Simulated scan of single mutants.
Amino acid sequence: MAPVLTFDIDRSSPTPLYFQLAQAIEGAITGGALPSGSKLENEVLLAQRYGLSRPTVRRAVQELVDKGLLVRKRGVGTQVLQPHVRRSVELTSLYDDLVRGGEAPTTEVLSLDRVPAPGEVAEDLELQEGDEVVVLRRLRRSHGEPLALMTNHLPGRFSPTVEELAERGLYQYLRSQGVHLRVAHQRIGARLARAEEARLLDEPPRAALLTMQRVAFDDHGTPVELGRHLYRASRYDFEATLVGR
């Protein structure tokens, strides 16, 4: 049964009625009164409850569909979607950003190996091809839902354990080793998920994924990490502030 919510619609306000309703529903979603997966009352009931026209209610609902907060499903009705994680394009770790945002991150370490560096990895980390590197692959979840599949390469002087990587973020580990991250070169793109990636991220086959490749440098200008990450486009956004010259 759809939760019954009570909102105040101010008919004397210059703010359009549809926008007031959309903001009220969005507040219920972000505040937890309408949790992920719950159903919204149908448009007829909402219109009757608040004395609004159906076109006004329909426009409010469409506003939230366009923002990725609601989805219309044939035979089911209108449901609340898992909210997107919005992350600024800064030199921070996903783990730290999720903790700051109250997103309850957990990490599953899929593999942790020491291997000879392939040519491209060696070039990015300014090593000789064949030098030993640590390669780790992790699945990051938020509130129990898969969010990102992360592959990282570190120079062989580092020795993280599975326990350390499962309990905290990679950048927390690097800071514990005396590394002060200063700058990074980062590239963001998109591609379709391969079969194993879709399975791990709980996405349909060939779903769209966001990609991020980053080389991070310490305060001596030495590369300390190469990251190649995949994010669920259905749940994740990068944000940037652009300033004109």
Rank of each mutant, 00 (worst) to 15 (best):
F7L: 15
D8H: 10
D8K: 12
D8E: 11
D8G: 08
I9M: 09
I9A: 04
R11C: 02
R11F: 07
R11D: 04
S13F: 02
S13D: 12
T15D: 03
P16E: 11
P16F: 07
P16Q: 12
L17I: 02
Y18G: 00
Y18E: 05
Y18S: 11
Y18F: 04
Q20R: 10
L21H: 05
L21A: 08
A22P: 01
Q23V: 13
A24F: 05
E26V: 07
A28S: 12
I29P: 01
T30Q: 06
G32S: 04
G32H: 04
L34I: 01
L34M: 08
P35R: 12
P35Y: 12
G37L: 10
K39I: 05
K39R: 14
K39Y: 10
L40W: 04
E41H: 06
N42I: 03
L45C: 06
Q48M: 14
Q48H: 13
R49E: 08
L52F: 03
L52K: 03
P55R: 10
R58C: 06
A60N: 10
V61S: 01
V61W: 00
V61E: 00
L69G: 00
L69S: 01
L69N: 01
K73Y: 15
R74C: 01
G75E: 01
V76L: 14
V76E: 15
V76F: 11
